[in-house]
């Protein structure tokens, strides 16, 4: 039982990381209908900045974290202001390709700036810090990951429901032209979405790095694993990204924990494909994801 609970706890923590990264994808898509393929590299840059701030510039972790968030927010805002704003009205495929370009540029900048070797990640915790309950180790970093995700989700709920900017974002997502007609500055909404998404994704990356202890330029690939989570939850659903992330995290870790008990031909590497199997299954039943908006078209 302890073995199972340990896996559930690890899966929940891992799922929260996917949820945070997925939220970044989802917020941008909801506001601007763009799938940002540079999300992983925003996470990479932020994590490297935090690591350098702690280990090279000797800043406390609690100062380094906002610095990392600030850097990626600025990158997100500049990209939105200088590039994407000029692309409004262009085909989504063009914009998607531009985000792939940004992805390559950011990764190259990381390699040029920090080199391509493995470097230490910044962590505020000792490796063993945490609690042991009934044979299950509840690590500090995992507890913080779960806690931060819950608090952030609550804050986002409040933001979208009860603040002017949150309502503006929802209105823009619902109908851009109607939002413009109501006096909403859609450009500011896009900027806000990019800044918010960059910050949340970076937070997910920093929390992931705390557990990894070391990072390298492939670290941004973590965003790819979060991708099935947002498709599963519904690309334009913020709550779907969170629930999708937790589902993917739990199933992935639980499958990894039990796959060795299956015959090798089925079990080996099963956890690698489980997220995609679940995604396919859900999409077959609900093509717009668990919480995605169903498009109604006049025919």
């Amino acid at each position: 039982m302890a073995y199972f609970l340990q896996l559930v706890f690890a899966g929940a923590a891992q799922g929260c990381i996917y949820a945070l990264i997925g939220l970044g994808f989802s917020i941008i898509f909801k506001a601007s209908q763009v799938i940002n393929f540079a999300q992983g590299e925003l996470l990479l840059v932020g994590t490297y900045v935090v690591a350098s701030a702690v280990l090279n510039w000797h800043l406390p972790f609690l100062l380094a974290l906002p610095l990392g968030l600030l850097v990626t927010i600025v990158i997100g805002l500049l990209f939105e202001r200088l590039v994407l704003r000029r692309m409004i009205g262009r085909p989504p495929f063009t914009i998607l390709m531009i985000t792939i370009g940004l992805d390559i540029i950011l990764r190259t900048l990381v390699i040029v700036g920090w080199g391509s070797r493995t470097i230490p990640a910044a962590t505020p915790f000792a490796v063993t810090s945490g609690f042991n309950v009934a044979g299950v180790h509840l690590g500090s970093s995992d507890l913080w990951t779960i806690g931060v995700t819950i608090v952030l989700c609550a804050a986002l709920y409040y933001f979208f429901r009860h603040t002017r900017y949150g309502l503006a974002m929802r209105a823009t997502a619902l109908d851009q032209e109607a939002a413009l007609a109501m006096g909403i500055d859609v450009r500011n909404v896009y900027a806000l979405a990019w800044g918010l998404a960059a910050a949340i994704t970076t937070l997910g990356g920093v929390l992931l790095a705390i557990d990894s202890l070391a990072i390298d330029p492939n670290f941004g690939n973590a965003a790819l694993v979060a991708f099935p989570a947002i498709i599963l939850g519904g690309l334009d659903s913020v709550s779907g990204a969170v629930i999708g992330g937790v589902i993917i995290g739990l199933t992935s870790v639980l499958t990894a924990g039990y796959e060795s008990r299956l015959p090798a031909v089925v079990g080996t590497g099963l956890h690698e494909v489980t997220p995609y199997l679940i995604m396919i299954l859900i999409l077959m039943i609900r093509p717009y994801g668990l919480f995605g908006s169903r498009k109604v078209e006049r025919i």
Binding site: A10, Q14, A222, A256, H271
Partner: peptide, 12 residues
């Protein structure tokens, strides 16, 4: 998997 970032299941 090469892209795995959490190894709790394997270590457990």
């Amino acid at each position: 998997a090469v892209n795995d970032t959490d190894f709790t299941a394997q270590v457990a």
